[in-house]
Design a protein around this nucleic acid. Sequence first.
DNA 1: GGTCTCTATGCAAATGTTTGCATATAAATA
DNA 2: TATTTATATGCAAACATTTGCATAGAGACC
Lengths: 197, 197
Amino acid sequence: MSLKHAILILLDKQPGSGYDLAQRFGGGIGNFWNATHQQVYQELKKLSGDQLVEFEVHAQAERPDKKVYRITPTGRSALKAWLKQPVKEGRINSTLLVKIYAAHLADPVALDQELAQLIIEHQQKLDGYAELERLYFSADVATRRKQRLPYLTLRSGIRYEWIWIEWMKEVKQLLADDALPEKPMMELLAKAAKVKR
Amino acid sequence: MSLKHAILILLDKQPGSGYDLAQRFGGGIGNFWNATHQQVYQELKKLSGDQLVEFEVHAQAERPDKKVYRITPTGRSALKAWLKQPVKEGRINSTLLVKIYAAHLADPVALDQELAQLIIEHQQKLDGYAELERLYFSADVATRRKQRLPYLTLRSGIRYEWIWIEWMKEVKQLLADDALPEKPMMELLAKAAKVKR
DNA sequence: GGTCTCTATGCAAATGTTTGCATATAAATA
DNA sequence: TATTTATATGCAAACATTTGCATAGAGACC
């Protein structure tokens, strides 16, 4: 499992407490790897037991005490070893696709409303990504270079949200009209790809 | 969890044994919901205990006995109730994105090779999808109408593989050249979208 | 004055997933 | 002839994730 490695990567970038890490999983890396605070605390305990991370307790006057975790040299080797191995992509499990697959059993009105709502939500996410991209491009070249890798993952996120929105709009329309798609997807994509070049 | 509901959907379409279902999770619905044979057997047991499915033992002469499962009326109601509720989309967890995010710690040659391999694999998957689409479009309208919902999920799969391939190619190139993307993703997508209309 | 949110941690139990093993027969392949 | 593949099922243990609860002080909001 790579929750372990996601944590090591975050701690390699910057040491932090369990709470900090849980927050960090809410944005940035959280766009492609999710973890709850419980997962983080439990995993930190294991990593600590395996000597892959270490911590120092920082007493705080008016806040609860903090355990600030840091990656160890052993942890860094383990991380590098993991990076060398080819990924085995996790299973794709999309509840929405399962639902569309069985849409003949569903209430059409409810499904239409649900799609409308999902389109809004994904559009908001895309808007957020678009804003981050504008920020990236307004930075100087040195900053852009430094932020290159996170930005590449953002480009993946933008593509991802974009196609979901396009697909959901298409499905919503077709279900409403009780119609069939006219042209093969492959054809449409090939045509669009030509223009990009 | 919707492994439960995926199984109910499959059994609603057509009764079958645990083995059958496990096979069916290898294609069709398996493109967006995965399950191993163990998951299937364990879930069938639970579903059976909850009276959502029932089974008959079919003795076979030269093969092990088969338990042929069927959805019950209770199961069908449970399925419909589930379909009414809005989906909560599962967490996105992409090991590859985590790796790219931390590519500065990785061996560039190994990463390049890995991307090359992944591009090939996803291209093969896309080719398979393209073939299924050709098949769909070569069928008569009645068949196309009957296969509409699975085909809509296929369109999602095609888009999905397509953007992964595009993104991986882009990343591979940029990492090899140690370059930065020139244009914002949003701009490229907007331009491509205009042409499709 | 009371509730809500944020900081900060974590136990315990339930639930879900994965891995390893086990069985058994037939047919195809090497 | 020996191995592999396909059919067909499932237990048991290990591992991972999710949910509910618990604590505790500070500051903001109503």
